[in-house]
Design a protein around this nucleic acid. Structure first.
Lengths: 351, 351
DNA sequence: TTGAAAGCGCTACCAA
DNA sequence: TTGGTAGCGCTTTCAA
C-alpha cells in the first residue's frame, strides 16, 4: 500500500500486427504476409514494413497464431524424470531437432507414476500440440486413448516391443538385460544377481530384469538373486541393496545393476566389505553415466544412444507432420567393457 | 500414392465448449462457468454438464483460453544446458512448484551463448508467458531490454550480485571460489590452481575463478595457475587440462575445479601420473554430482541448493503475479568435505 | 499486389 | 442463476 500502483508488472505484450500496420499505413494482413511470404510484396513496401517491425520490436504472438492457424507449433514431451538426468540428453537432442523447424517443446514429468503420466498428457494435450513424444511403450489405457483420440503423431521413445500407439524409437530392454548377464557369464561369474530400483510401472527396468533371467536360464543356471526396491535409484540405495543381497546370498559373484547410479553405491559397498571388484565380484551398470569411466574400478556399462533417440524422434515427428507414415525403429546400444568386469575373458569353472 | 488418404493423422482436437453446450442444451458460457466457477450453477445442471464433459472427453483448449483471458498460463525458462544436468534439478523443482498452480513451463537453452540465449528469450516471449526465469544474472543487453519491455516478472537464477532485471535467487559465486581456495589452504595445500571449462560468457565460472584468486591474494600467495578451456566441462577435458597444468606448474598441490565432471577426470589423470590424492594433491569440485561421494578418493565439492533455488523461483513468480514486489535472494551453499582434500586440517608450512 | 471479412475457442462483461 | 455479445491477435480465404 502507499503511493505505488501496487500489483506486479503489467504485462504489456509487444506491438500487434495491427499497430505495425497502422504505422506503415497498410492493412494488417499485408504485414502478416510480409512476415510469412515476403516475396509476395513490393520490395519497397517490404522495406518499410521491415523497418516498422524492427522499430516496434514486434514479436509475433504465437498464441494467436496457433489459434488462428491450422497447425500448432508445439510438441509435447513427457519423460519419467529429468532429475536423475536419464533423459536430459534425449530431450536436449529432441528439442534441438524441433527448434530448427520452429517447434517449441513443452515438457511434462510422469515421475514413474501412470496417474501422473496421464495427468501430464492431459495437461499437454490442452495446448493442442502438433505432436507428442513420451518415454516408454507401455502406458495406462487412459494415456493410449487420449493420445489415439488426439489424432496427432505420437512417438514413444526409449523402449520398443510393445504395441506402439503410432511411432516408436527405442531399445530392446530384454536384450539389454540378456547382454548384461551374458557378459558376466562370459567373464566367468556364475552367481548373477540383479540390483537396483524397480518401480512398479517402470516397464523397461522389468524387461532388463527378465533379460537377465533369460540368459541365466539359457546357460542352465537358476533364477537370478534379486535385490530391488521401488525407491529412486541412487548410490545409497545400491549400497543398502547390496548389503542385503550379500547377507542372503553370499555366493553372488556377478551383479547387473539397473542404473549406473546404483552401481556406484554397489561398488562402494563391496569395497567397504572387502569384496574385490572385479576379482571377487563383477559389476555391470546401465546408462553409461558421465562418471562411470572415472570410478575405480571403472564401471562396465550399457550405453544407450541418447542423442540419436532424441534426434530420430524429432525426425519422425517432422516427417509424420508432412504426411509420412508411422515408423518403429529399434536403435542399437553397446556395452562399454571396463575394469569392473575385467576378470578375464574365458569361462573358468569354479574349483 | 496408393489408396490411402495419405498425409499424417488429422489433428482432431477435442470437443469444444460449444459442442458440450449444444449437447446439454445450455449456452456456451454456462459450460465455461461450470468449469471455472462451479458454485455459480444449480447442482442439477452442474451434474449434467459434468457428465457431458466427461462423455466427450473435453480437454480445455489452453491456447484459446490464453488468447481470450487476461493472463497466460505459461512460464518461460531458459537454462544454459540440460545436457550436463547442472540445472535439471532446478528445472524440475521449478516446474513442480508452478504446476501446482496450473502453470506450464516452456524450456529454452542458451548453450552458454549470448546470441542463442537472446534467441531463446525471443522465442519464448512469442508465447506471451506470464513470467520468465533464466540462469545467470549478467545478460546480453538485448535480453535485458526484451525482458524489461515485456513487463512481466523475471527471475534470474543461480547467480546473484549483478544488476537484477527484476528478481533473483542465487549464490555468490565469488564467495564459492574463495571458499574452495580457503579450504585447500586450510588443509595445507599451498600451490593452488584452477582447472575447468571457462566459457567466455559463463559469468558464474569466471566469478568462482576470481574468488580463488582473491583468497590466494589474501593469504599472501600469488595468482593461481590456470588451466582452462572453452570446451564443455567433462572428465576428458579435466584429464587433458591437468596434464598440461602439471607440465607447466609441477609444483601445484591444490586444484579447484569448475565442475565435478572435470574433477573426475582430474582425479583419474593424477592417479595415472602417480600423484596421490589427497597426500600429494588436494582436489575440490563444484556442483556435488551424484557420483562424487562414490569416487576413490571421494570428491570434496561445493553443494548448491538446486531444489531450493527452483522452489524459491516458483514462489517468487507466483507472488509477483499476485502483486508482491521484486525480491533478490542469496541462498546458502556448503562444502561437503570428503577424502580428496583430507590431508589434515592444520596448515603445515612446506619444509 | 493489396485489402476486407470471417473465424479459431475461449473469457469477460453485461443484461436478462 | 443463466445467456448474449464483444473481442483476444492472428491466419485464411476471397474479392478488389
Amino acid at each position: 500500500m502507499g503511493q505505488g500502483a501496487g500489483g506486479g508488472p503489467q504485462p504489456r505484450g509487444g506491438a500487434t500486427l495491427a499497430q505495425v500496420a497502422a504505422r506503415v499505413g497498410v492493412s494488417l494482413n499485408t504485414v502478416s504476409r510480409a512476415i510469412r511470404a515476403p516475396h509476395t510484396l513490393r520490395p519497397e513496401l517490404l522495406g518499410r514494413i521491415a523497418a516498422a517491425l524492427d522499430e516496434l520490436n514486434y514479436v509475433p504472438n504465437r498464441i494467436a497464431g496457433s489459434l488462428a492457424g491450422t497447425r500448432s507449433a508445439l510438441v509435447g514431451v513427457v519423460v519419467s524424470s529429468l532429475f536423475h538426468s536419464e533423459f536430459a540428453a534425449v530431450v536436449e537432442a529432441l528439442q534441438t531437432g524441433l527448434l530448427a523447424r520452429d517447434f517449441q517443446v513443452m515438457l511434462g514429468h510422469s515421475h514413474y507414476d501412470p496417474a501422473r503420466e496421464a495427468g501430464a498428457v492431459r495437461a499437454l494435450l490442452g495446448w493442442r500440440p502438433a505432436a507428442m513424444a513420451l518415454v516408454g511403450i507401455d502406458h495406462h489405457r487412459d494415456v493410449s486413448r487420449m493420445l489415439g483420440e488426439a489424432g496427432i503423431p505420437v512417438v514413444q521413445m526409449w523402449d520398443v516391443g510393445g504395441e506402439a500407439i503410432d511411432s516408436a524409437v527405442g531399445m530392446d530392454h530384454v536384450a539389454i538385460g540378456r547382454a548384461q548377464a551374458e557378459h558376466l557369464l562370459a567373464r566367468g561369474y556364475r552367481h548373477v544377481a540383479v540390483v537396483g530400483s524397480l518401480r512398479p510401472h517402470d516397464a523397461r527396468a522389468h524387461k532388463r530384469c527378465r533379460g537377465v533371467a533369460q540368459a541365466l536360464a539359457a546357460a542352465g543356471l537358476g533364477e537370478p538373486a534379486l535385490a530391488t526396491s521401488a525407491e529412486p535409484g541412487d548410490p545409497d540405495l545400491g549400497g543398502r541393496l547390496v548389503a542385503e543381497l550379500l547377507a542372503r546370498h553370499p555366493e553372488v559373484d556377478g551383479i547387473a545393476c539397473n542404473s549406473d547410479a546404483v552401481a556406484y553405491g554397489v561398488l562402494r559397498a563391496l569395497r567397504a566389505r572387502g569384496r574385490r571388484v572385479p576379482d571377487d565380484v563383477g559389476v555391470v551398470g546401465f546408462g553409461d553415466a558421465e562418471a562411470s569411466a572415472c570410478l575405480v574400478p571403472a564401471l562396465t556399462s550399457v550405453r544407450p544412444p541418447r542423442a540419436a533417440i532424441g534426434r530420430l524422434t524429432a525426425e519422425i515427428i517432422l516427417a509424420r507432420l508432412e504426411g509420412a507414415g508411422p515408423r518403429q525403429l529399434e536403435v542399437a546400444w553397446d556395452i562399454l567393457v571396463r575394469d569392473s568386469t575385467a576378470r578375464g575373458s574365458t569361462v573358468s569353472a569354479p574349483i
